[in-house]
Design a protein around this nucleic acid. Sequence first.
DNA 1: TGTTCATGG
DNA 2: TATCCATGAACA
Length: 456
Amino acid sequence: MVAALHGYGLIHEGWQALADVEENGIHIDLDYVETTILKLDNRINTMRSRLDNTKFVKKWRGVYGHKFKWDSDEQLGDMLYNEMGLEPIKYTNDGGHTPSVDHETLELLSPKLPLLKGFLKMRKMSKCKDTYLAGILRETVDEYLHPFFNLHTVATFRSSSSKPNFQNMPIRDKMQGELIRRAFIPRPGRMLMEVDYSGIEVCIAACYHKDPNMIAYIKDPTKDMHRDMAAQCYKLPTEEVTSDIRYCGKNCFVFPQFYGDWFKSCAGALWASVDTRELVCTDGTKVRDHLGSHTINLDTLKKFEDHIEMVEDDFWNNRFAVYGQWKEDHYDEYLRRGYVDIKTGFRCGGIMQRNDVSNYPVQGAAFHCLLWSLIQVNKELKAAGLSTLIVGQIHDSIVLDVVPEELEQVLAIVRRVMCVEIRKAWPWIIVPLDVDVEITDIDASWFEKKKMGRAA
DNA sequence: TGTTCATGG
DNA sequence: TATCCATGAACA
């Protein structure tokens, strides 16, 4: 019943389905947006007055006079590194000429200059006000926001979103997530639901390289790659790995390695996280003390780098040797042919960096799983005469505005299409695909979404 | 117009 | 040889 879509057809039907999504639009609490902009404006002004009384800002104003600007990174860097004589920690991407003033840097400098914490808070508030709330307000018409979902802008054949970008609304920072996502509400009497593919890029990568150990990790629910890698990186037994420690293994080692990072960079990030996240084992031991207890091998960053170099070697030449070999073979194939193909019917050509050659086909095909599903779900919702609507899409997730009475039927459609039908249409998907579902109460905002149990 | 920073997957 | 893909605001 579900026809296989390929290449052009996928984009054509995807574009039609996303046009429906754009037309549907998402409901916005306009009163909330307007009052929150005013509130943030006041808070930012209050913070600025407070900072105006500090020696640092007085000096800054003295140096720059009428050219003083709160948001000038160049002026801030000049004050910190020239006027105050602070030691640069890292540099911007211009060949080592400009010392950075980004969040990580200011955080590290804040013990010497506590008011920098105020600048960091101000930046977060300004971002919320000027990028997100202002964008939502500017683009909202009659209480509905209609972000664009483009299929023609991205090198990997992923989608993008603009005016406003619906795909980078804050969520990692809880305060910012709440400020912005409270603006997104369901249509009256309805609920917002978000369905996302779990670990889709890892699953799709496995369809290319077919590494048996990776496939085992995906198929066996008792196995956990990120937990195991965190344990190996921090030299811990797996029972001592907390969700915080696992998070560091995932985001400081596993994903960077997949994208082509190398051990020195990973070691630095893993090492720094021990302190910045104050990692503590299940049994209460501090990870810093645990690493210190291995003084013979791990008492310095250099020794830790050596350790992570061995972990990296084991990762690519032992644990995921087939994956590692695929990366090499795949790159050689690109050098011979001058292009790489995506399993969903697209060709990436031209001059590509080594990492791009293995990353593009995975990123593209992973998104196409979401796109294929969105097309089918959209069709089935219409065919069944349901009033539930798709109102957004974020690379590996679909956002729906759900009529409560239709919830069970919608869930059945979504799960069948996303986990079952897609594998019939695309037999090259050789691992199971799973979804996570989050949903709000009736009339509750996007911020208040909660995980939904499998039973429901 | 290009750079830096901040936000997401 | 050295972390992938985006959008967007402010500044110079």
